[in-house]
Design a protein around this nucleic acid. Structure first.
Lengths: 245, 245
DNA sequence: ATATTGGGTCAACCCTGTTGACGTAAGGCG
DNA sequence: CGCCTTACGTCAACAGGGTTGACCCAATAT
């Protein structure tokens, strides 16, 4: 497994350009690079150039690109969940949690696309799991069901966020092509071969939009319907009238 | 500018090693390559070597790596949906569709990691979209809502499948380590700092299991609750009976 | 039989991540 | 204060990636 840098770095030596490298500085610069010049700007060489050091100097701080990406991912999770304090309404809490995770990933699409399907098992992730399961427990779900439902919830949120991030991480060309596809390729179809597509033809351009919130809403609706306790916030959303008492 | 090969290829010319190239042969070889040696084994050069042709010959059939990946994705969809004929029960139809897509991606776990997040805009995908939207229309949803809900449905299915495929694509070592993590790393936690995790401690090993079916069930439950028409199959939802003892 | 052109080949360019050797300066220690 | 160790920044090099343009042969259309 990754032989990470053991402890506090004591000895510092400025680079040729006078910069004092540090793990934090490298991660921050990597995120800035991605934010400014697009997802494909993250490479060891470019990162070295942005830091004003030799690219290979980064290998003194990280075992490789993978290790660096994990460090970035850890920071993203920390940023996303920073200051999150759920209230009494567990449905609203889960929804905000979903939106925070999604925003965190979308803020750094390339890093997210690389680290999306990975279980970090680090502090920030553990804290998030505790928070999420806590919300389901507060809804009255017994422990076993709370754990299972949380898994379904977070897997849905994470995999959707990963999908969106992966799309944003595509090179500009492919991204636009994918969006255009719903207007172009799906428009002139044989009505006999594709009756359903023909029926919803005018709605297809909207398929380029994100389904994240729609999916989360559907999931939360189902969770609320199954919850042993009614939630404190009351039924602010129209669909919950159909839920069980 | 995707200048895809217009129609049937008429002129054939064997490569130096005597192989007759074709779009199908290239895609099949790519899938075999990925299945045998992992996703990183897919490169234009290696694929050329496996086919017994010059690497750049592939550019006569695909605009680039991206185009090839889309063709691979579409073939996986085609394999998964082959022979699928939904009955009157639209919920059951969507569920089978979900399971088929999942099985298709799991059959090629390593290719799925590359392909699952893309819009192929090819024949097999278009047919699948038509089928799925058709099922929602048969449930009585108006066109706009059918399109939006289908997007949420298929995005959930695809992104979950991608997550699972990515896990299955891990080397055996890392997979077992990930599963052990739920027993090990999440077991000895500070009960004060992580109360919820402590409460569900005995259920955590189950977190290593898949949440695919659970998530699909939740989604279908929400869809059924919103459907204008009651479904022909009756309301014998497997969920309530399938809940844990 | 000849003209056309699809498409396989080759060389070249610029990008990537990663490694090993090298040397310099920082910091502990006498 | 000055040595000695070693952290770490630098450099050169390697192997592999995608993609392009020129070249030219042969398969087909006429």
């Amino acid at each position: 497994m990754t032989t990470r840098v053991p402890q506090e770095r004591r000895r510092r030596r400025p680079t040729r350009s006078g910069v004092l490298l540090s793990e934090d500085l490298i991660v921050e610069t990597a995120l800035r690079l991605i934010g400014e010049h697009g997802p494909e700007a993250l490479s060891v060489r470019r990162l070295g150039a942005a830091l004003g050091c030799d690219p290979t100097a980064l290998y003194r701080y990280f075992d490789g690109t993978d290790d660096l990406v994990l460090a970035i991912a850890d920071r993203i999770i920390g940023e996303a969940m920073a200051g999150f304090a759920p209230g009494a309404d567990w449905v609203a809490g889960l929804r905000e949690m979903a939106l925070r995770v999604r925003a965190g990933y979308l803020a750094h699409p390339r890093a997210a696309a690389l680290a999306a399907h990975r279980v970090t098992r680090r502090r920030n992730e553990i804290r998030a799991v505790d928070t999420g399961i806590g919300l389901l427990l507060s809804a009255g779900f017994p422990p076993a069901e709370a754990a299972r439902l949380y898994l379904a919830f977070i897997d849905t949120v994470l995999s959707h966020a990963a999908t969106e991030a992966a799309f944003h991480a595509l090179p500009r060309q492919g991204r636009e092509a994918d969006q255009r596809a719903w207007r172009d390729a799906y428009q002139d179809l044989d009505p006999v071969a594709y009756p359903a597509l023909t029926a919803v033809r005018r709605e297809l351009p909207a398929m380029a939009d994100s389904s994240f919130e729609q999916s989360v809403d559907l999931l939360l609706q189902a969770l609320e319907a199954r919850a042993p306790l009614t939630r404190p916030g009351g039924s602010a959303r129209p669909r919950s009238a159909a839920s069980l008492p």
